[in-house]
């Protein structure tokens, strides 16, 4: 419909439009500091990072355009494939441990009748502990010596001590356990609110039909929280792909054997330990593209499922 010209507006409409424009200015005025800060601290570094990845660098200064040369060097670097593989191993373990556990905790919490608030606070409490503190705490728990906390327990049970974080096969799952310990509570609370939003009449109808707890969970609860699950699923992928400080703190920067080296940690090592800002930038661009691809796959899948009538 063609927009009506100013000449055809009634005085009331003109007043409203002027008010609208003023309101827009006020809105932009309120948003401006945020937009400026966001642009400065997010978009500029992001574009700068992309830009630097095509140059040789000295410090943070671009020296000479090298095209895809830095990417070629990155892909040939012996640590890149290791970090790439490890990052997906983190993802796998995280989906196995960290994705399912909050759903289970949420389900259990939703069934609790007495001391519900106490359990909610208790489950959320680890999230109030700083991530670095949690990492250091678990490093002590996983001390590989016989004087370590868990090894002392094992010894008390007559078992052999375990290398824990020093065991290349255990290190990633144990780091994921640490991350999950801290993060599962807050995710569980999101699920809990999703459970609260489910229409109670579904359960009542199911109970009348004789459905047990398991049937109610499988046929009512889980399908009803699919939108929350899919959102948290993609958020978890994005978060885990950027795992950094846990291996940094818990395994002395990824371990001498690189068994816990992640892509972001590798980028940190390039940029700050080796002074190779170009390689670091290329590494984070690659990580960005991986996350972007995974997110795109997710949205494509959601789109296709919706088209077929699934509730996601």
């Amino acid at each position: 419909m063609p927009r009506r010209g100013e000449a055809f507006l009634t005085s009331e409409e003109k007043r409203r439009r002027r008010g609208g424009i003023l309101r827009q200015f006020a809105g932009w005025g309120v948003m401006a500091p945020g937009v400026i800060l966001f642009s400065f601290f997010v978009w500029v570094p992001l574009l700068m990072n992309l830009y630097l990845s095509f140059f040789s660098t000295k410090g943070f200064n671009a020296e000479e355009f090298v095209g895809l040369g830095t990417y070629q060097e990155l892909f040939q670097h012996p640590d890149f494939l290791t970090a790439f593989g490890n990052t997906f191993t983190y993802l796998g373990w995280s989906l196995l441990i960290g994705f399912i556990l909050p759903i289970i905790i949420g389900l259990l919490l939703s069934e609790v009748i007495h001391f519900r608030a106490l359990f909610r606070i208790g489950i959320y409490l680890p999230a109030a502990i700083a991530g670095l503190t949690a990492s250091i705490l678990f490093t002590y728990l996983f001390d590989p010596s016989s004087a370590g906390f868990l090894n002392t327990v094992l010894e008390g049970l007559g078992m052999e001590p375990i290398l824990w974080l020093d065991d290349p096969n255990l290190v990633i799952p144990l780091i994921v356990v640490t991350m999950t310990w801290r993060g599962a509570g807050s995710t569980a609370l999101i699920y809990l609110s999703a459970f609260a939003g489910i229409d109670r009449s579904y359960y009542e109808a199911a109970q009348i039909d004789g459905a047990g707890v398991w049937s109610r969970i499988v046929h009512i609860t889980l399908p009803q929280i699919v939108p929350s699950m899919t959102t948290l699923f993609v958020l978890q992928i994005i978060s885990v792909m950027q795992v950094f400080y846990e291996p940094f703190v818990m395994t002395n920067g990824g371990g001498g054997d690189r068994s816990s080296l992640s892509l972001l940690l590798l980028a940190y090592n390039f940029g700050f330990r080796d002074g190779r800002v170009d390689l670091s930038s290329a590494c984070t661009v690659v990580l960005f593209l991986i996350i972007l691809s995974l997110s795109a796959i997710y949205y494509l899948a959601v789109h296709l499922l919706k088209k077929r009538g699934y509730r996601v």
Partner: peptide, 19 residues
């Protein structure tokens, strides 16, 4: 050797007293 496989330089002084 002291149990563990991933030591850094600073670990010597936290272990030299007893371990």
């Amino acid at each position: 050797l002291v149990e563990g496989t991933s030591f850094v330089y600073n670990d010597w002084y936290s272990n030299i007293n007893e371990r």
